[in-house]
Design a protein around this nucleic acid. Sequence first.
DNA 1: ACCTGAACACCGTTCAAGT
DNA 2: ACCTGAACACCGTTCAAGT
Lengths: 223, 223
Amino acid sequence: MANRTDALSRERIVATAVQMLDATGEEGLTFRALSAQLKTGAGAIYWHVANKSELLDAATDAVLAGATTVAEAAPEAEIRALALGLFDAIDVHPWLAGQLAQGPWKSEALRIFERLGQRVQALGVPAPAQFTSATALMIFIVGAAAQNAANASNAAKIRAAQPDASRTAMLAVESAAWEGLDPGDYPFLHDIAGQLREHDDREQFLAGVDLILAGIAALRPQA
Amino acid sequence: MANRTDALSRERIVATAVQMLDATGEEGLTFRALSAQLKTGAGAIYWHVANKSELLDAATDAVLAGATTVAEAAPEAEIRALALGLFDAIDVHPWLAGQLAQGPWKSEALRIFERLGQRVQALGVPAPAQFTSATALMIFIVGAAAQNAANASNAAKIRAAQPDASRTAMLAVESAAWEGLDPGDYPFLHDIAGQLREHDDREQFLAGVDLILAGIAALRPQA
DNA sequence: ACCTGAACACCGTTCAAGT
DNA sequence: ACCTGAACACCGTTCAAGT
């Protein structure tokens, strides 16, 4: 019968790759480990996939597809929903950050860029500024989510060695380090150490998106 | 005498690593190639440097130090100068992008974040919004420069196979691809294909920085 | 204290040989 | 057409042995 679970196919390879990426990150995805999981030889995978880079692209597309469908709303609200969708997708699949961080975006990532751009147009941004606006949004979203993913994987690594290191405990350590800096040399970090300790990642992310939206609003010709 | 050119030292290792990174990128920096260049064994390097990650950190700091000194000016102008300094540093050393893209920033990168934050404070941004503002700036700067670096290395790779592929020619190809998309599915990309073809990277980057600065200005209590 | 270079435990990718 | 698995050309890192 068609679609037997144990038949090797590009789909099954990509799906398994996504699972391994989620579990162990990009360096955990190995053709040896992958072929072991799939109970084949390494060479069998190369029949369906050109190389590791193409496999990562396929995994990225698989995860991004449908990760950012957005309910109809006002353009700003749709941009926030799109942003949050990407943020959450990267939170669940931290390896996505590395794939998206270095454009040029293609396939699914390009689709997201397109959707952001549509909302930028709907906001009434003048044509010459649309490219800048949509790019700024995409770069910030991907960059902020990448930071978040890096922090999370960092936390996971430390927790592996010291299992009781909670996220708040780690933030407290970094925050204390900033507080301990010489206020003469580091007045800013010294000042905001408290904000670092108490900040919520999602809230902080949305505040950043709103900051860019405010900048975009300033580009609009006054009605 | 002290500082003989052929004495192995952490400094000389890092300096040579930077040269190799600039020439061949991160995957070109190998302990074998590095030790060959330095005319030693691979193990000798490990006497001065813990591992490759630490070596990359040291190379990042070496390149970032002094790369972003900025003449005194109005806060906005200083932020633009800081941003442009980082942009240019990543342009010359594309491997920097990968190092900075995944914070938490440390040593020299943290210093740059501090300097950005000082200017945000000078702009009169209310305390609760300072963290968001400085972070948004840093993320955009690093993200945009990373895109640029990726495009450049992409261009270099294609040029290696097809030596007459100029940057403008490559942009024209991508632009034409966007123009060829179905305007029903991709109205935005179809529209801005022309802007992609004609845009100047530095100008586009500065426009993005100004966009965020405009958003930051909107945070300021009206005088 | 510092350096050597072989050795270990891995990689991605290829390819003759099988079915 | 698709799969097997050994082999190739690499990695980062370690470590006994040298000076």
